[in-house]
Design a protein around this nucleic acid. Structure first.
Length: 314
DNA sequence: AAAACCAGCAACCGCGCACCC
DNA sequence: TGGGTGCGCGGTTGCTGGTTT
């Protein structure tokens, strides 16, 4: 493989980057971009391998890097995401704008791991129905929705951040196991601590969207329309409105790039995910019967209406 | 004051995947 | 189809600065 040889070249320098090297790399990238990392060192006048340049840029020199201590919210999010997806640092980083996978990985290894290892003084007795009950409820939802197992890890992971609360019908509400990934079952104290973190601070519970009987994959045209795929479509493009009474039977899928809601054999809608979205709150997508809006600061996609409490937190 | 120890983090390594020819 | 190449990712290493003995 190419990269395996690129760093073996004799001239290649290794170790810490000097300010001069940083400056060269910044100057080159900002003026030329980085079409091919393997060409960057030579063109930038650096005696580094392309891989090293890439790493330096991505993890340290990038202008949108957010440095400094992790906030409590970031920490909670990391814990939550790690609970769901394990050591997929790049995936976790994608939910924390300005943070790199390397930074998060280091932070995890040095801080959070220790934190979670400590026994929790508050523990989980606060909510007696937590673990075993949720496990069985998750098992129940799983038994009713074998497709869950066919979704990729990412989808499963994202499922775990959904708090779906339906006022009606009650049987569409599924609580879920937050800790079904292999990595997360290391020990009970991890689990307790994580649950405690999650529940006390974010008031969020992970969840599985209620099961759909039929899956339909015809997206409404506004989905993912090109360059600004991370941005929500304009309101007027939302031609179809999900009837409230059908919402509970929606199927949600494809979380990698966008959320797809299917609510009948003919209709579905796709909503781009909110990674890197920071400028809009409450962008309305829906119409008369219910409203979808996206609370970006909270990372939630929320079907809502004035007359009910339906919502989905992502 | 100096040696030993430790924690944090930047950087490297190796693997896997996608793409191209 | 298979080999070569480039890139991204997760795991690991090792340097550095702070703390303890």
């Amino acid at each position: 493989m190419g990269q395996h040889t690129c760093c073996n070249q004799q001239k290649v320098k290794r170790g810490l980057w000097s300010p001069e090297e940083d400056e060269k790399l910044i100057r080159y990238i900002t003026t030329h971009g980085y079409g091919s990392w393997s060409e960057v060192p030579e063109k930038a006048g650096l005696q580094r391998c392309g891989k090293s340049c890439r790493l330096r840029w991505i993890n340290y020199l990038r202008p949108d890097i957010r440095r400094g201590r992790f906030t409590l919210d970031e920490e909670k999010l990391i814990i939550t995401l790690h609970e769901a997806v394990g050591n997929r640092w790049a995936h976790i980083a994608s939910h924390l704008p300005g943070r790199t996978d390397n930074e998060i990985k280091n932070y995890w290894n040095s801080w959070i791991k220790k934190k979670l290892r400590k026994p929790s003084p508050i523990a989980t007795s606060k909510n007696p129905s937590t673990h075993s009950e949720q496990t069985s409820q998750f098992a129940y939802s799983l038994s009713n929705n074998p497709n869950i197992l066919n979704q990729d890890l990412n989808a499963n992971a994202t499922h775990q951040f959904h708090n779906i609360q339906f006022t009606t019908p009650p049987d569409s509400l599924f609580m879920f196991e937050t800790n079904f990934t292999k990595e997360s079952t290391e020990n009970q104290s991890n689990l307790d601590q994580t649950n405690q973190f999650f529940q006390e601070t974010t008031q969020c519970y992970s969840g599985i969207w209620s099961v759909n009987q039929q899956h339909c994959s015809q997206p409404i045209p506004f989905s993912n329309n090109g360059e600004n795929s991370n941005y929500l479509p304009p309101l007027e493009s939302m031609e179809n409105v999900v009837p409230l009474e059908l919402l509970h039977s929606c199927n949600i899928s494809n979380f990698e790039e966008h959320v797809t809601l299917d609510w009948s054999q003919q209709n579905s809608a796709s909503f781009p995910l909110w990674d890197q979205l920071q400028q809009t709150d409450d962008q309305v997508l829906g119409g008369e019967e219910f409203v979808l809006h996206q609370d970006l600061s909270m990372g939630m996609l929320i079907p809502n209406s004035s007359s009910n409490e339906h919502h989905l937190e992502l």
